[in-house]
Structure formats: structure tokens, C-alpha cells
């Protein structure tokens, strides 16, 4: 069957057999940002956004995304033009092995879209589906707060080129 969706802002279509899950479809087509962690919706490393809401793509049928807008980490920002969250995650030391990071960033983006200055409890709630084994979450909470502040202050306007040694 033919599957049509908007993927990272572009209209795309895929021919699928039916049982494919969104994670497999994305990875088979070179969108490697979503990771496979548990295949059971428990860890969130496969998270992508569907119509602005983050979901676990490992248990989400590709067919469910038909006619919808899918955003992967590749659509959030690039190395040349990272999103404020991508920048602050790196600056704050919130990235270690990186497996959970794409999914967590999309959850954080969803949070900031609906709650521009989140409190600690909001952040904990918004990221509670994204397990991380490396960081203890401390730096990630900080990174979300710093990004929120930066976006509000308009300094980064959501997107700003990264500068190498700025965090010194």
C-alpha cells in the first residue's frame, strides 16, 4: 500500500507491505536518528513526533502515520543549524552515549512548544518516557531550562549556528 506523509517538512511517499512499524520504515530509509532500544515502548529511544506529539515509533505502525506530519531528530536541526535544545544539550554535558538523546530532544521540543518556561516538574513529566542510563538526567534537566531561557530571550531565535569553543 502507498503511504503518504510529511516527513521533516517534505511530502514523501513510501510503498509498504502493511506490517511495518514506523521505526523500521524510517531506519530502512536512512533516517537513523531514531534508535532501537527495547522494541516495546519502554525506553523512548525511538521517539519521533507525529503531528507535534512525541511517540514511540517502535510500536507505531507506519500505516498510522499516513497523512500525518512526522518529525525526526533530523528535522529538528542540523549540525550547521542546530536547534537551541541540541546546542544546550551539548553545552550542558547532557549527551553521553547519545542513544536516548534524539528521542529525548523531541520530547523536550514538544514540551517547550506548549510550555515555554517549564519548571522542574514539567521537565520531569515531559521526559518521563525517555530512559537514559548514562547521565542521571541532571544535565538534561539543566539543558532544557537553559534552552527555554535562550529561546525566550530570543537570542537564539530557536536556531543559531553553533560555535565551537563558546562553552569555555
Amino acid at each position: 500500500m502507498k503511504l503518504e506523509m510529511k516527513l521533516n517538512g517534505k511530502d514523501v511517499s513510501f510503498e509498504i507491505a502493511g506490517p511495518e512499524l514506523l521505526l523500521d520504515l524510517l531506519r530502512d530509509n536512512g533516517y537513523f536518528g531514531a534508535k532501537r532500544g527495547c522494541d516495546n515502548g519502554d525506553c523512548g529511544s525511538c521517539a519521533v513526533q507525529v503531528d507535534g506529539k512525541s511517540i514511540c515509533s517502535c510500536i507505531y505502525f507506519a500505516g498510522q502515520a499516513h497523512g500525518r506530519e512526522v518529525t525526526t531528530i533530523e528535522g529538528l536541526g542540523t549540525m550547521e543549524h542546530p536547534h537551541a535544545l541540541q546546542e544546550t544539550f551539548v553545552e550542558c554535558g547532557a549527551v553521553q552515549c547519545g542513544s536516548c538523546i534524539p528521542g529525548m530532544l523531541l520530547s523536550a521540543k514538544e514540551l517547550l512548544d506548549e510550555c515555554p518556561s517549564p519548571k522542574d516538574a514539567d521537565i520531569r513529566e515531559a521526559l518521563d518516557g525517555n530512559l537514559c542510563r548514562c547521565t542521571g538526567y541532571t544535565k538534561q534537566f539543566e539543558a532544557v531550562k537553559v534552552a527555554a531561557k535562550r529561546i525566550i530571550e530570543g537570542k537564539s531565535k530557536g536556531r543559531k549556528p553553533a560555535r565551537g569553543g563558546k562553552s569555555r
Binding site: K53, S54, S107, G129
Partner: peptide
Amino acid sequence: AASQPSRLLRNA
């Protein structure tokens, strides 16, 4: 509804 423990699952 909020007691469902994962935002990713609450969304779906």
C-alpha cells in the same frame, strides 16, 4: 490519565 507513566505512551 496522568498516572500513565510515559509521556510518549500518554501521547499515543
